[in-house]
């Protein structure tokens, strides 16, 4: 279970997260929605210790992330797959090496690594792209490689940072299907950060709206779709102010 406990974070004196509290149950996919620049990605980066909170903490299976030493943080990161907004693939490495990189930190033989890479690439429909470089891939393919890199590690948790941003509607739907398939195939707990409502409705078990540094509302997809909260309503309907 992942718990955000009264998380606070400011940049240059400007508060971004201001008492962010949320519980993500095992086996479910929770989608965090909210306007651009409201701190959704910032919250996600606290889960893997890429950012240190000003106050509060993220608790992963009873471990307070900000208090972990380097070895414990590395152990925690081995349990979590992170899919970055723009995939964050290593430019100089082939698709194979990008996916294999995390596996090389584990006690696996070269054959086992190759098998895991093939399996992950097959799951994202990229079999045959092993030798291509990231620069030769489309935006959607890059995101799929990013997902393959995360799932190849067979993590307990997967964190998706804006997985469909910048993609056309069809490619976005493919990525959504992929996230659903990943959850069903690997039974992982997921957190998806997005402002794409169609994606949120497709992949989420629960949806939480982040507004002014706090959770404004959290509920099932149906509860969010029927909300009477004017702020959440305006956001999910995409109405200008």
């Amino acid at each position: 279970m992942i718990e955000f406990q009264d998380l606070r974070k400011a940049f240059d004196g400007r508060p971004v997260l201001d008492g962010f509290t949320l519980r993500v149950q095992d086996g479910e996919t929770t989608v965090i929605i909210g306007y651009s620049g409201t701190g959704k990605s910032v919250a996600l980066k606290h889960v893997v210790g890429l950012l240190q909170p000003d106050a509060g903490d993220v608790i992963v299976d009873g471990r307070a992330v900000s208090t972990l030493d380097r070895a414990a943080l590395t152990a925690l990161r081995r349990e979590i797959g992170f899919v970055f907004q723009f995939a964050a693939l290593f430019d100089s490495m082939s698709v194979f090496d990008n996916v294999a990189l995390g596996l090389r930190r584990r006690d696996l033989s070269d054959d086992e690594i190759a098998a895991r890479v093939q399996e992950a690439l097959a799951l994202v429909d990229l079999t045959g792209a092993e030798e291509r470089l990231p620069a030769e891939l489309s935006g959607g393919m890059r995101k799929r490689v990013g997902i393959a890199r995360a799932i190849a590690l067979r993590p307990r948790y997967i964190l998706y940072d804006e997985p469909t941003t910048g993609l056309d509607p069809v490619t976005s739907a493919v990525i959504d299907q992929l996230m659903v398939r990943t959850r069903e195939h690997l039974r992982v707990t997921g957190i998806v950060v997005t402002h794409d409502m169609r994606s949120a409705y497709t992949v989420g078990d629960r949806i939480a709206m982040l507004y002014e540094g706090k959770i404004r509302q959290v509920g099932t997809v149906a509860q969010i779709q029927e909300t009477e909260d004017p702020v959440v309503r305006q956001f999910i309907e995409g109405r200008p102010t």
Partner: peptide, 10 residues
Amino acid sequence: EQVDALETLA
């Protein structure tokens, strides 16, 4: 974010 990606890969 490639440096962040490295860290998340342990």
